[in-house]
């Protein structure tokens, strides 16, 4: 990590949610006396991100990812804690701050629904005061890299999700921001669009040195892009490390035997599944020894060693937290 560029310290955010009992009686009671429930979306989150870093921010739905992004982008004021992005407090110097960042929310377009894509771009050029020469250069590069040529004259409402996301990403970068916040940029995209999206984000990060904070549910995004991952749940940061940290030291050994075998019980592995001649083992460590043992004892036709999918590890982590915490929502 280079010099700290984004510094978040003990960030907290509480929401008041009006509640009422179900049914007509509940509605009537609600008129007389409103009951509020406090939901803690963030609960003392601290981290630092260096200039030019590409950091993944993961966690289950409702964990506080989007709330963090909204605070960092200056549209939400936290209930407590401090936060500095490139020397500015986002919600205090909003106009100055948002001019330097780009934000994409995968769930919501920021383009103008009824306008052709290129007109949205031109309006953004005016709003961000991008000089015409800069604008033309940036637009042409983005249009080429994100394959937007056929989309430029199409109204946003007629775009497919993949096309819209590419246009949204381009729109967030026209003013060449130093920082890019991406909130689930690959949600709902097909495999090809996801790959294109990842490739683009990686290039932007390495070639321009744009600092990127990315939230996602797709562990492939994280594996492909992020050297560093932060995992949040129930508004608390649970893990801040590398992708390798997310992987356990377990390996999966897939063995195809040339004939059905009866396994001896003493092997130091779990049988995860077996179907016909194929048996999938899970091995904690000492993989070479296990492989030697199996090939010596049985007629082996083929053998593969793989990482367990990172999703499983992450799901296990989410699960663990839930059982420690006891309840779904902290009240």
């Amino acid at each position: 990590m280079s010099e700290p560029y984004i510094v978040v310290n003990d960030l907290a955010k509480r929401f008041q949610i009006a509640e009422r009992d179900p049914g007509l009686w509940g509605a009537l009671k609600g008129i007389a006396r409103r009951r509020y429930r406090t939901v803690e979306a963030l609960h003392g989150v601290s981290f630092e991100i260096g200039r030019g870093d590409l950091v993944g921010y993961i966690g289950p739905n409702g964990a506080g990812k989007s709330t963090t992004i909204k605070i960092l982008s200056g549209i939400l004021v936290p209930s407590g804690g401090t936060c500095e992005v490139a020397g500015l407090t986002p919600w205090q110097s909003r106009v100055e701050h948002v001019a330097r960042i780009g934000v994409v929310f995968g769930q919501r377009t920021q383009l103008w629904w009824d306008l052709p894509v290129v007109e949205s771009f031109e309006l953004l050029r005016d709003i961000y005061r991008v000089p015409q020469a800069h604008y033309v250069r940036e637009r042409d590069e983005l249009v080429e890299l994100l394959d937007l040529v056929p989309l430029l004259d199409v109204p946003v409402r007629q775009l497919s999700l993949g096309q819209r996301m590419r246009s949204d990403l381009a729109a967030s970068l026209l003013h060449d921001p130093e920082i890019l916040f991406l909130d689930e940029p690959t949600i709902g995209l097909d495999a090809v669009s996801k790959l294109a999206m990842r490739d683009f984000i990686r290039r932007r990060n390495t070639e321009r040195g744009t600092t990127v904070l990315l939230t996602t549910h797709d562990m492939d995004d994280v594996e492909a892009l992020c050297s560093r991952v932060m995992l949040i749940n129930h508004g608390t940061l649970l893990m801040d490390g590398t992708v390798a940290d997310l992987r356990s030291d377990r390996r999966r050994v897939v063995v195809d035997f040339s004939e059905p075998v009866a396994l001896a019980a003493h092997h130091s592995a779990l049988v995860r599944s077996s179907s016909g001649e194929r048996i999938v083992f899970e091995v904690q460590s000492r993989v070479p020894e296990f492989v030697a043992e199996v090939t010596a004892a049985y007629p082996v036709q083929d053998l593969m060693v793989e990482h367990p999918p990172i999703e499983e590890t992450v799901a296990a982590l989410y699960q663990q937290v839930r059982s420690v915490d006891g309840t779904g929502i902290r009240e």
Binding site: L76, R94, V98, R108, Q110, I127, Y128
Partner: peptide
């Protein structure tokens, strides 16, 4: 609640 997203633009 989309009004919050208007605040992403560097204008009053």
């Amino acid at each position: 609640g989309g009004v919050a997203y208007e605040l992403l633009r560097p204008v009053g």
